[in-house]
Simulated scan of single mutants.
Amino acid sequence: MDGIPAERVTDAVPAEHGTGGVPVRLRRAARATDRRPVRVLMLHGLAGSTAVWRRFTELAADELELWEAELPWAADGDTRWSHEPDPVALVAQALAGVPDGVDLLIAHSFAANAALELLAGRPAPRPGAAVLVSPFHRRSPEHFDWDTATYYLGGFQRIIDEGLRIGSDGRLPTELRAAMALRVRDRIGPYGWMRFFDAYLRSPFLDTAAIGLPALVVTGEHDFAAPPDDARALAGALPDARLRVFEESGHFPMAEQPELFAEIVSSFLPALHSSYVPEST
């Protein structure tokens, strides 16, 4: 609901899932005409929306062709997605829906975890590289305890509230924002929350060595949802990764510091070009 009209929409081939295929939309065509566009697919997190990419879309490098997925785990999505135990198939559907394939996948929060599981060995179209924003990752199952579960169960509404605050540029009154966050939390429901926590609990068992593509891991120093140490642990475990910590951001660095986010994505492109994107002729 960001007011930017869809320029092109294509539906991925439906997988064996009750909600059908995941639509993808061309958010912005590449502005550069002297070289091959870099096709980018952006995936928002749980209880979020495609609006989280608005400022990045305005500032992104000219060579980027920006696509966004209408994921069912959005704040106003079809909640039946959470009744199935494996959300990873939805990421595969989104990747399959981008014509001619995805060069760069940018995934935030819960979507980053789902994308990592896909890249670790599931049969699906693969991007050339990935930017993983505010991922949830623990090195060992011993790093989870009952206090961890209590924190995330009790803090789910707070994370949603923070997203509403950032998305509205602080314009929503506190009481209204809290009421909206409660409604979104109740809409996502226990099943949606469990899909998130399931993915988090599986993160220590992720076969990171199998993710053989360049990755950029981005985190905010003040992220109370996905702690910066999670991002540091993930970047250290991936075979080809670099880490960027935004010192003035929380869980939504692409919206809190969009200029810096656009800059670091642009600086990551040479790694993508050298390994995956053919030179223009």
Rank of each mutant, 00 (worst) to 15 (best):
R165P: 01
G189M: 08
I188F: 07
L272G: 02
H222Y: 06
H273Q: 10
P214Q: 06
G236A: 13
R36P: 02
A199P: 04
P190D: 11
A124M: 10
D34I: 14
E221D: 07
L95N: 07
A60E: 13
T50A: 13
G167Y: 05
D230I: 03
V98K: 12
P85Y: 04
I160A: 06
L105E: 08
L206G: 09
S267V: 07
G163P: 11
G250A: 12
R55I: 02
A225L: 02
A237D: 14
E259H: 15
A179R: 15
L59V: 06
F268E: 07
R171D: 14
A89N: 06
Y200R: 04
G192F: 04
L105P: 09
A60K: 00
L243Q: 03
L71M: 15
D186L: 15
R28V: 01
D240G: 03
R183N: 13
V38L: 14
E256K: 08
R183C: 12
D198F: 13
R185N: 15
V277E: 05
V88W: 08
G21N: 03
F110D: 03
V133R: 02
A107P: 08
L26V: 01
D62I: 10
H222G: 04
S266N: 10
F224E: 09
V102M: 07
G128F: 04
G97M: 09
V102S: 02
R35C: 08
L59S: 08
A210F: 11
E142H: 14
I160W: 05
V217E: 01
V184R: 03
N113P: 05
E248I: 01
D240L: 03
F156S: 07
P141Q: 12
A209C: 05
G250Q: 07
L176K: 15
S134Q: 02
D103W: 02
